[in-house]
């Protein structure tokens, strides 16, 4: 019992963590139609910026978590406004190439600014430590991550479904020209959505600082693959799909590692292959 509960908890926390990264990726794909490989870089920059605020400006973890991702939003703005905007109309491979170029640029930028070595944040005072669950310690911070995931999902849902801006975003994503002819400033709106997606990725990075306990250049490349798998399983562009996909992948991976260690590396890919055979558009995706 104890071991099952802890496997599920571990799965939930890692799933929610992937969701935080996958949410921005999915939002940007759903609205802008761009598969942003550089999203992992925003995650990395979010981690480095939060860490810098935390460590060098002597501020607390929360200040870092607020200021770090905001700083990364500026990078997101530049990427969309001056580069990505020009490739919306041309073929998908060019978008992929451009965003991949940013992955390399940001990785090297991090190496120049923060050095190539791993940075390791000090342990948290608040939310640090652990609580016993069924006689075994579970880190408080992971419980916090398990709570943050659904909170972000709720925020996104409310924003997209319940607000005027949400309606405009949905309208523009389903028909750009119609929205534009009705007076919506689609380019500005897209910049806004991209920057918001960037913020989500960077927030994931900021939250990763205590979760992973380590910052390395290239840290975004591992997580972007997981986030991408999650997005594909859930249905590219579907936030609900990404949320469910992240939960499923998180829990299955945790079970796999614990109980079927020989297959743990393949389980996610088997699952992805199975879903794609059954529903090529993903669980909650719509055929495009």
């Amino acid at each position: 019992m104890q071991s099952y509960v802890h496997v599920i908890l571990a799965g939930l926390s890692s799933g929610m963590f992937i969701w935080l990264v996958a949410s921005g990726l999915t939002l940007i794909f759903g609205v802008l139609g761009v598969l942003n490989f550089a999203h992992g870089s925003f995650y990395m920059l979010g981690a480095y910026c939060s860490f810098t605020v935390l460590k060098y400006l002597g501020a607390g973890f929360w200040t870092g978590l607020v200021l770090g991702p905001l700083a990364v939003c500026a990078a997101g703005f530049v990427v969309e406004r001056f580069f990505l905007r020009h490739v919306y109309r041309i073929a998908l491979p060019y978008q992929l190439l451009l965003t991949f170029a940013f992955v390399l640029i940001f990785d090297n930028l991090v190496k120049i600014v923060w050095g190539g070595g791993a940075l390791s944040p000090p342990s948290l005072s608040f939310l640090g430590g652990s609580v016993p669950i069924l006689g075994r310690n579970f880190p408080v911070y992971n419980l916090f991550i398990i709570a943050v995931g659904p909170a972000v999902a709720l925020l996104l849902w409310a924003m997209l479904e319940k607000t005027w801006y949400g309606r405009i975003i949905r309208a523009s994503s389903s028909d750009r020209e119609m929205a534009a002819s009705l007076g919506v400033r689609v380019p500005a709106l897209f910049t806004g959505v991209f920057v918001f997606g960037t913020w989500l990725g960077a927030l994931g990075g900021g939250l990763a600082v205590p979760y992973v306990g380590l910052l390395t250049p290239g840290m975004g490349e591992t997580i972007i693959i997981e986030a991408f798998i999650v997005a594909v399983i859930g249905g590219l562009g579907s936030l609900k799909g990404a949320f469910v996909g992240a939960l499923v992948i998180g829990v299955i991976t945790a079970f796999g590692t614990r109980f079927f260690p020989a297959f743990d590396m393949f389980l996610t890919f088997i699952l992805m292959g199975g879903v794609l055979l059954w529903r090529p558009q993903g669980i909650f995706g719509t055929a495009r």
């Binding site: 190539g116 390395t216 290239g218 591992t222």
Partner: peptide, 8 residues
């Protein structure tokens, strides 16, 4: 190794 997570 000069790139990726082990560049250090």
């Amino acid at each position: 190794v000069l790139s990726g997570t082990l560049a250090g």
